[in-house]
Design a protein around this nucleic acid. Structure first.
Lengths: 331, 331
DNA sequence: ATGAAAGCGCTAACAT
DNA sequence: ATGTTAGCGCTTTCAT
């Protein structure tokens, strides 16, 4: 009836009728059934997002960035988490696609074949598909919003080499399918090795991250400390830093540290922990804006842009990584 | 047709037919349309959750607790955030209820009248409604999963008084509609005052929480430090602690600190920060289990339990709050 | 064990 | 400016 029209295009019904409708709506406490609407129109107001872990501050911020832009536009967020398993990602993708979302946002560029097939199908059906937190210029299957973890690993190594170190440790994520962390680790190792320096890699234990960083530090200390350690995350680095303070190891003179993520704690600890700033909230926002642009293009019959959006990370050099004939602290 | 039956009750179709169906499903890459299913059956597999802020580690953990239990049961999570505004909560509630969720989980027990009406309506329609992160024995409108913030404020004050302090500071949340934080603050003040001691309250600035805690500390230092400060969150306390270290104030001898939340950093900082442990992940899990129990009861025609679930917080006394003739550190 | 018929609540296209 | 008709893709009930 007219009510349906009123709800979508209020200006197209007469003033008097509008009033009567308003009154009736208020009286009955009417809530439109979105499923029926979706079924009839073929459009839905849900965006599906699949992330590894909701409890991680990083992804939580990205999700907040997404909702902060999408929610005011009347879009709702259907959230699924994979626990860093591509199989669970596939399952979750199948489940969320059943809601014919208006867009699908996934994390990273590694998926099962079945998941890839679903993503391609969705995209072919005019549903924008975004891969966030990653970037591979060679891979143009889906729009990516993020950065190259390989480049970050290289950047981290270059920064540390620049400080004059020759003997390194790297504390990688202990989560097997955290592909992006492993890419950073590999690039770090490759760069260090190519420079003729030495690096020992270890995996952080799968416990609370700061405790894991502390444990990794203690283990390395037993085996003989390198001059510098880089980490898969700032939480690891912060734990190691606190361990070093306790062990009366002078940071950065005896031990340089470099984290990843630019978490608040890295700025707050005395002297600060050097890190890589990656803007999780911005990634979420850029994803959301990209979706809005794609929908707009699609609805106007234009071809939506398929350019990747690089959210460039950068080294934040604080005290923990400076020393040893560095450009900042000359000998 | 038979396919629909096969998907829900596989054992009720003949083996041969099942095979043919399987083949067809695989061939076409069929994904059932959940909207149509929902519309026809009146049941949906979505749980709607409304939380103040996704980016907060605390709520993110609660959400993870929810999904970890609901997702394996085939339930999906529709997530909305309110930014600590009851008006936005009302809007979001209206929006998510349009998806006829199988349950509605909201945060706290303060809502607009319209929101309350929707919650009552949903509950009357057989949709379980949960208020999480709060507990008021007197309020039995909806099942609550959480704890009394008033009790926590009292508990915090009692702990500090027990350490022998007489002059207090309290750093409250600067977010106006963070009702739960303000309840803790009020109870803290009431208890301190009732004991004949003194307390000055200030609000944390709305910046990054650790920086806010540090700023609050600095401000208090200018005005003359009390002997003990309690905080609305561990991040504030951690920031203040780091500020105190920098200012060479001895914690806990010159200044005792007590946080809230038991964040990892409180355990990691040297000596540890005393705090209140509140188990956000457990709250999410208990919510999920409560929903499962309610659905089970409803589907078997039993009356679901409406008992509140208290997830009891407790004081974690670390070094930052011990001293001044306390039972732990006698004079 | 399978099929046929009706309808869930809405939207779209077409009358009026 | 408003009402009418058909149908979105499933589930449900009832018949075969």
């Amino acid at each position: 009836m007219t009510v349906s029209r009123y709800l979508r295009e209020p200006q197209r019904v007469a003033g008097v009728t509008a009033q009567r409708i308003d009154a009736a709506l208020a009286l009955t406490g009417y809530t439109p059934n979105k499923h029926a609407g979706m079924l009839a129109s073929g459009r839905s107001s849900v965006v599906a997002a699949i992330i590894p872990n909701i409890a991680s501050a990083t992804f939580a911020e990205t999700v907040q960035g997404l909702t902060d832009i999408l929610q005011p536009r009347g879009m709702e967020l259907l959230l699924a988490s994979t626990n860093y398993s591509v199989e669970r990602e596939e399952e979750q993708m199948r489940a969320v696609l059943g809601w014919s979302p208006s867009a699908l946002v996934v994390t990273g560029r590694r998926h099962t074949d079945a998941a890839l097939a679903m993503m391609r199908q969705a995209q072919a059906d005019g549903v924008p598909v975004l891969e966030m937190w990653d970037h591979d210029p060679a891979d143009r299957s889906f729009v990516q919003v993020g950065f190259s973890h390989q480049a970050v690993g290289t950047m981290m190594a270059a920064h540390m080499l620049q400080q004059g170190h020759r003997d390194f440790g790297y504390v990688d994520s202990g989560v097997r399918e955290d592909f992006r962390a492993h890419e950073r680790a590999q690039a770090f190792v490759a760069t260090i090795t190519a420079a003729g320096a030495r690096v020992r890699v270890c995996e952080a234990p799968r416990i609370e991250p700061m405790a894991a960083g502390r444990a990794a530090f203690t283990a390395m200390q037993k085996a003989g400390l390198p001059g510098a350690i880089a980490f898969a995350s700032d939480n690891f680095a912060a734990g190691a830093y606190l361990g070093a303070i306790e062990a009366q190891i002078d940071v950065p003179r005896e031990l340089a540290l470099l984290g990843f993520g630019d978490f608040p704690i890295s700025r707050q600890l005395p002297g600060g922990i050097s890190t890589v700033s990656v803007s999780p909230y911005a990634i979420g926002q850029v994803c959301a804006r990209q979706l809005l642009a794609t929908w707009a293009a699609l609805s106007e019959g234009r071809t939506p842009s398929r350019r990747h959006r690089v959210v460039a990370p950068k080294i934040v050099a604080r005290r923990s990584s400076q020393g040893r004939g560095s450009p900042f602290n000359p000998p």
